[in-house]
C-alpha cells in the first residue's frame, strides 16, 4: 500500500468510486451489502482495518467498541449464515470472515496495531533488527556469551546451574526493559492521536508526524529484538 499519498477519506472515496455489485452490477456505496439485491459484497483489498471497523485511524482504541463491531460484522459475514446461499456468496462470506478475523486480531493487540499503522502510514515493512539497540549493546553481547556457555555445558553441572541463575536475573532486567518500551509506545499513541485530532496540515504538523512515526518504528524494532532475545533465553533455561 502507498500510504503517503492518500488520507483516509481520499482512500475511501477511491474505493467507493470503483465499487459495483458483483451480482446486479448496481453501484455499491462502500457498504457490505448491495442496496438493490441485498447480496453480500467482497470486502475490498484496499480497505484498511480501521475503515473496515468504522473507527478513526487512532492508536488508542475503545476495546469494547471494537469487540461489539467485530461481533456485529461476524454476524454479517460468517459462513454459518450462508449455508443456503449460492456458491459465490459462500466464497465471499469465507473471504470476508477470514479478513475480518485478521483485522480484529491486528487491531485488538496494541503492538500489532502500532505495527499495522506504521505499515499504513509510512509504508514500512516490518524491519527486523540484526544488531542490538545501542544502549543495550554491551549487555546483550555478554548475554549471548552466557547463552552459548550454557548450551555448551553439561546441563547437570554446578557451573550450568549458576549460569542459569545468572540468566534468570538477566531475564527479569530484559523483561522490564520490554515493558518500558511498551509504555513509551503508549505515550507515542497519545501524541499521534492528538495530532490526528488537530488535523492541521502545517509544515510543523508534518514534521511532528514524521518524528512520531520514526520513533515508533525504532522502539517497535528494538522491542522485537529484545523479545526475541528473551524467548531465546527462556528456551535455553528450560
Amino acid at each position: 500500500m502507498d500510504g503517503h499519498t492518500h488520507s483516509t477519506s481520499d482512500r475511501r472515496e477511491l474505493q467507493m468510486a470503483r465499487s459495483m455489485c458483483w451480482h446486479c452490477q448496481s453501484e455499491v456505496s462502500g457498504e457490505y451489502f448491495c442496496d438493490r439485491c441485498v447480496k453480500v459484497q467482497p470486502v475490498s483489498k484496499e480497505l484498511d482495518y480501521f475503515t473496515c471497523f468504522g473507527i478513526p485511524r487512532r492508536l488508542s482504541i475503545d476495546q469494547q467498541q471494537l469487540e461489539t463491531k467485530f461481533y456485529e460484522l461476524s454476524r454479517a459475514f460468517h459462513p454459518d449464515f450462508y449455508q443456503n446461499k449460492s456458491g459465490a456468496e459462500q466464497t465471499i462470506s469465507l473471504g470476508n470472515s477470514a479478513m475480518l478475523n485478521t483485522a480484529y486480531r491486528t487491531l485488538r493487540d496494541p503492538i500489532q496495531r502500532a505495527e499495522y499503522l506504521l505499515d499504513l502510514e509510512a509504508g514500512a515493512v516490518k524491519e527486523i533488527r540484526t544488531t542490538p539497540p545501542a544502549d543495550l549493546f554491551e549487555e546483550i553481547l555478554e548475554l549471548q556469551d552466557t547463552l552459548n556457555e550454557v548450551r555448551a555445558s553439561d546441563r547437570t553441572s554446578d557451573a550450568a546451574a549458576s549460569l542459569r541463575a545468572a540468566l534468570q536475573s538477566k531475564r527479569a532486567t530484559l523483561e522490564q526493559r520490554q515493558r518500558d518500551m511498551e509504555a513509551q509506545i503508549q505515550q507515542l499513541f497519545g501524541q499521534w492521536d492528538a495530532l490526528q485530532d488537530r488535523g492541521d496540515a502545517t509544515e510543523q504538523a508534518r514534521a511532528e508526524r514524521t518524528r512520531i512515526l520514526k520513533e515508533m518504528r525504532d522502539i517497535l524494532s528494538n522491542r522485537t529484538y529484545v523479545k526475541n532475545i528473551v524467548n531465546d533465553l527462556v528456551a535455553t533455561i528450560a
Binding site: Y71, S74, R75, H78, D80, F81, Q83, N84
Partner: peptide
C-alpha cells in the same frame, strides 16, 4: 444446535 444454525432455524447464536 449447530445444525439448526446452519439450516437457518436458530439465528441469534453464532460460534466463532
Amino acid at each position: 444446535v449447530q445444525a439448526d444454525i446452519l439450516s437457518g432455524g436458530t439465528t441469534d447464536m453464532l460460534l466463532l
